[in-house]
Amino acid sequence: MTTTTPIDYVHGYSAHETRRLGDQADTLAQLLHADTAYPAGSEVLEVGCGVGAQTVHLVEASPEAHFTAVDVSAASLAQARARVTALFPQAHVTWHQANLFELPFADAEFDHIFVCFVLEHLAAPRQALSALRRVLRPGGTLTVIEGDHGSTFFHPHSPYAHAAIDCLIQLQAAPGANALIGRELHPLIAGAGYDDVTVRPRTVNTDRSRPTLVDGFTRNTFIAMIESVRKEALAAGLITPSDWDRGIADLHRTAADDGTFHYTFFKAVAVNPQSP
Rank of each mutant, 00 (worst) to 15 (best):
D8K: 13
T55L: 15
H16S: 15
R202N: 04
S14Y: 14
N99M: 03
Q24N: 01
L185E: 06
D26R: 10
G191R: 04
A78G: 01
A61R: 15
F266Q: 09
A34Y: 00
A192T: 09
D215H: 14
A78K: 03
T85R: 15
G48D: 09
R81D: 10
P89E: 05
A69S: 06
N272I: 03
G41W: 04
P156T: 02
G140L: 10
A15E: 13
V204P: 12
A106L: 00
A25M: 13
H162N: 10
G150L: 03
F261D: 08
F217H: 15
V93K: 12
K267Y: 02
P211Y: 11
Y13K: 11
T85H: 14
V44S: 03
Y194D: 06
S228C: 11
M1C: 02
F222S: 04
D166T: 14
A256C: 08
L28F: 03
E43T: 07
S228Y: 05
A82W: 01
Y38A: 09
G41V: 12
D250H: 09
I248D: 08
A65I: 04
N272E: 14
I169E: 10
A270L: 09
V72Y: 00
S14T: 15
D245K: 06
A123K: 14
R133N: 10
F105I: 02
G237H: 09
A108E: 08
H16K: 13
V269H: 10
F222D: 09
G191V: 05
I223K: 08
P159N: 02
C49F: 09
M1K: 10
H112R: 11
A163H: 07
A163M: 00
H16C: 00
L168H: 07
E232A: 15
A98K: 13
D71C: 05
E120H: 12
N205F: 14
A164N: 02
F117K: 13
S209P: 01
L28H: 08
T4V: 14
G41E: 04
H33P: 01
Q97S: 09
A163C: 02
A161F: 02
S73N: 12
I181F: 09
E46S: 08
A173T: 07
V47Y: 12
T5S: 11
T4N: 13
L45K: 00
R253E: 14
D258M: 06
M225V: 06
F117G: 13
T254Q: 12
F261C: 12
T18G: 11
V44F: 10
R246A: 06
D257Q: 15
I169S: 07
D243C: 09
A40Y: 05
A190D: 15
G139F: 00
G147Q: 02
A86Y: 05
D243Q: 15
H112Y: 14
F114A: 04
E43Y: 00
P138D: 13
I248M: 09
G52T: 05
D71S: 03
G147T: 04
S158L: 00
D107W: 01
N99D: 12
D111S: 12
A236G: 08
A131S: 15
H66S: 04
D245H: 03
T260H: 06
A61E: 03
V84H: 00
F154H: 09
D195A: 15
P63T: 07
H155Y: 05
A53F: 10
A179V: 01
T5M: 05
T141L: 01
K267I: 10
L129C: 08
V144Y: 04
S158Q: 01
G12E: 14
P159D: 11
